[in-house]
């Protein structure tokens, strides 16, 4: 089953409803908070967010900055794409570096073959939010991504330590979002809460939204580690016996290069990707090595203030 593909957006009533809901949420952020920021990762969800923010505030510009937490282990393509998007939209971009958190001793770099800067991002992010006095951080997370997220609110409260308390969430009814808080606390806001991966791809296709080349099939040096394909790079520590090999792959999510898994694929157009997503038998986050650490991994990281 699946909704028929490749129709113009006006034929997709569900996409129009999701779009309108997201625009409503973005305007609530602009209306309720003093210093919002849009967390931009370079992945497709945050690209869709930027597109929606343009629509929400046109003919004005996006009234808040994009904030990128740079692990220093990004794919080159992500950074090029980011800078091009900023040029195209006229948005303000702020970048904060995990490397700076390491240099200043705020975090200690992990070592070994499974090391990743993904976890360290949390500290850099929370430091950036308090430095910028951000009171609402808009993120591209979706409830269908992961079990712990299925219960998260659209306006999700964070205490002064940036932590989420899943057992003590505010009830969220109708279209009424309660953004009141004490000084020093902040909100994470998720305008794409009700979207699925398929909705995102259909929306990208029907709106013709540019996305980084990483999402399309290409030949790249990868390392196979159990059933995950990881991009070979100077940042990826190899296990004994691991040898990079050339494969035709693409990425389904784009995050830190050391823990974003690729899949073998020939999908070279948006249409190909859509058909692949529809017949997909593996959820997108499962390619991310960091979710594998434990079944409740996401819940634990979210409590600590992860994206």
């Amino acid at each position: 089953m699946g909704i028929s593909l490749l129709q113009p957006v006006q034929k997709h009533e569900h996409l129009r409803q999701l779009e309108s809901e997201a625009i409503y949420t973005l305007r609530e952020v602009a209306g309720q908070f003093e210093r919002p920021a849009l967390l931009f990762s370079g992945g497709k969800d945050s690209i869709v967010l930027v597109h929606l923010a343009q629509k929400a505030f046109a003919p004005g510009g996006i009234p808040f900055p994009l904030l990128h937490i740079d692990t220093g282990h990004n794919f080159e393509e992500t950074i090029e794409f980011r800078d091009e998007l900023v040029r195209r939209t006229g948005a303000t971009l702020l970048v904060r570096y995990v490397q700076d958190s390491i240099d200043s001793g705020r975090v200690r770099e992990e070592t070994g073959p499974y090391s990743s800067r993904n976890g360290l991002q949390t500290v850099t992010l929370l430091d950036a939010l308090s430095e910028l006095k951000t009171d609402a951080a808009i993120g591209g997370a979706r409830r269908d991504e992961e079990k712990a997220r299925s219960k998260e609110r659209v306006f999700s409260h964070r205490d002064v330590f940036g932590q989420w308390d899943p057992k003590n969430q505010r009830p969220e009814l109708w279209n009424i979002y309660n953004g009141s808080k004490n000084p020093g606390e902040h909100f994470r806001v998720f305008p794409l809460s009700n979207w699925t991966e398929l909705d995102i791809w259909q929306y990208i296709v029907s709106e013709g939204i540019p996305i980084p080349s990483l999402y399309f099939s290409h030949v790249r040096k990868v390392i196979q580690r159990s059933d995950v394909l990881l991009a070979d790079s100077e940042f990826l520590a190899k296990l004994p016996g691991e040898v990079p090999e050339l494969r035709r792959i693409r990425f389904r999510t784009v995050g830190d290069s050391t823990c974003t898994g690729a899949i073998e694929s020939n999908a070279s157009s948006l249409e190909d990707i859509l058909s692949e997503v529809i017949s997909a038998r593996v959820t997108e986050r499962s390619g991310r090595a960091d979710d594998r650490r434990s079944d409740a991994a996401m819940e634990d990281r979210k409590r600590q203030g992860y994206f």
Partner: peptide, 25 residues
Amino acid sequence: GLRAEREQNITIDVAYRYFSTDKRK
């Protein structure tokens, strides 16, 4: 989903789930 309810075997909060068929989402 949440750890507490998996341990206690009950549903303690509103969880949102998504699926679609040819007819609608």
